[in-house]
Design a protein around this nucleic acid. Sequence first.
RNA 1: UGUAUAUGCCGGGUAGUUGCCCCCGCUAAGGCGGGGGAGGAAAGUCCGGGCACCCUCUCUGCCAACAUCUACAAAUCUGUGGCAGAGCAGAAGAAGAUAGUGGUUAACGACCACCCCCCGCAGCCACGGGGCGAGACAGUACCACAGAAACAAAACAGCCAAUCAUCAUCAGCCCUGAGUAUAAAGCUUGGAGCAAUGAAAGAGGUAAUGGUGAAAAGAGUGAGGUAAAAGCUCACAGGCGUUAUUGGCAACAAUAACGUGAGGGAAACACUUAUCUGGUGCAACUUCCAAUUUUGUCCACCGCAAGUGAAUACAAAUCGGUGGCAAAACGAGAGGGCUUGAUUCCGGCAGUGAUGUCGGAACUAGACAGAUAACUACCACCCCCCGCCUCGGUGGGGGAUACAGAACCCGGCUUACAGGCAUAUAUAAAAA
RNA 2: GGCCCUAUCGUCUAGUGGCCUAGGACGCAUGGUUCUCAUCCAUGUAACCGGGGUUCGAAUCCCCGUGGGGCCG
Length: 112
Amino acid sequence: MLPKKNRLVTRGDFKGVFRGGLRARSGPFQLMCQKNKTNNARFGFIVPLSVSKKAVRRNKLRRQMHEFIRMMIFQKISGYDCVIRAYPGADELQYDEMGQYIMEMIKKAGIL
RNA sequence: UGUAUAUGCCGGGUAGUUGCCCCCGCUAAGGCGGGGGAGGAAAGUCCGGGCACCCUCUCUGCCAACAUCUACAAAUCUGUGGCAGAGCAGAAGAAGAUAGUGGUUAACGACCACCCCCCGCAGCCACGGGGCGAGACAGUACCACAGAAACAAAACAGCCAAUCAUCAUCAGCCCUGAGUAUAAAGCUUGGAGCAAUGAAAGAGGUAAUGGUGAAAAGAGUGAGGUAAAAGCUCACAGGCGUUAUUGGCAACAAUAACGUGAGGGAAACACUUAUCUGGUGCAACUUCCAAUUUUGUCCACCGCAAGUGAAUACAAAUCGGUGGCAAAACGAGAGGGCUUGAUUCCGGCAGUGAUGUCGGAACUAGACAGAUAACUACCACCCCCCGCCUCGGUGGGGGAUACAGAACCCGGCUUACAGGCAUAUAUAAAAA
RNA sequence: GGCCCUAUCGUCUAGUGGCCUAGGACGCAUGGUUCUCAUCCAUGUAACCGGGGUUCGAAUCCCCGUGGGGCCG
């Protein structure tokens, strides 16, 4: 998991990112980004009920996304608020496949 | 030993790397060190309780204003109102719930023990399974189709000639008209009545019989009885009710006596009886407070302007506006509620049991876009394939490891669940 | 977290315990009409969410699940 200061917390934080405009999509994921005024990068993850009806699967997918961001690219990004949303089909992917899709989105968005 | 069912229990382990949440200690801070970190169902939300607030009522205390009475006045008392606290307090209801008995419990529709009924099963032994298991001689409705008829008695078909009414026969009895004959009797013929025989189902009797149907006035068998019949009567067997005795805390069971002849369903009803229930739910409730709104005998500035002044101008009050301050409302966000509790474990005692009680020990998640994880290796267990040998061991490779994630907390119920352990029962094979 | 509602052919729906072997509309299929298509006509197709129970009998009544939908501060 990411430290608490690197997470998006309130409803207002998420609404701000939705209006940010910078978006990219790859496979069953969508990335939305907005610049913030700090040096921190903050991340939020959305796994709607339509991905899986089981709470265990949704929580696991969210944790895996947290883990991938933390391990791979967390140190390289700064000054952005990002939200990653999952769509149906995401719960059937392996950890490596999920990582490839997320990397692709980040390259498309060009925030590295 | 295998398989099946039921019940109870367990629900992978170790190590490494990188991380997350909470608590404690140290530090100026960054951070460092230590400790803890999902379940048997955390799920469904089908029930029950704790706890919190609200409504009503009762009691206690305090408060001030008004009213009334008394009094010179004050105090006190009463009523109304407000605040605080307490309360095994919750009338009523065409509202809701429960329903065999006894017990357990904080409480329950849960649990335990027993009773009764149904099924497995030929069976009121036993065993296993199931049961919303009070009342259908208070009321309102319902019982399709078929059938004579579906619950109230009747109608219909059928049966019956004992009775009444009718018809026929008549060589019996009796009365009588006419004819003939006569002393009378007699003979011939007609009529009414009685009896007998027969016909006929109009009145009447009968409900046992009636291709149906889930169910047919619901008491079976045998005998008597009758015109034909029927619990109409009797014997035996059985049902139901009341009473008594015995056993049991009780439901109830057994026996005896007396009585009795009743269709079904209340998981049909805003039906009855008995008992119980105030409402809402931690998104309860509460504290802080950004922005916003409203208010102000408050402060500052601006506008209008009585007025002042020769004049540029100055200018009180009122009213309007802006800002500040204060108060209230609202509710983005933050804090509390939030984990020591009908708690967990061990042991003793009581009880058939659910459970209770006594003693000792322990502290065991508190998140809030929501921590408890990700990856790797090895081991354990199960399955498959290949190789080796001492034939049940060993080596290698591959696969599988469930259901599922706390959100105020407990007690149940229900549903999901790879694999494993224990016990009981049934069954199959082998051995003795 | 808490509290509610609902489920019938492919779709929208009707359905007082028995006339339900579940009706209607739109679809879909086949045939007819037309030179052809559409329209129209005829015939067919296809459903009571699952499991127990009550009852002689259940889509309907009762219980337990499953799926779908809604509300709150």
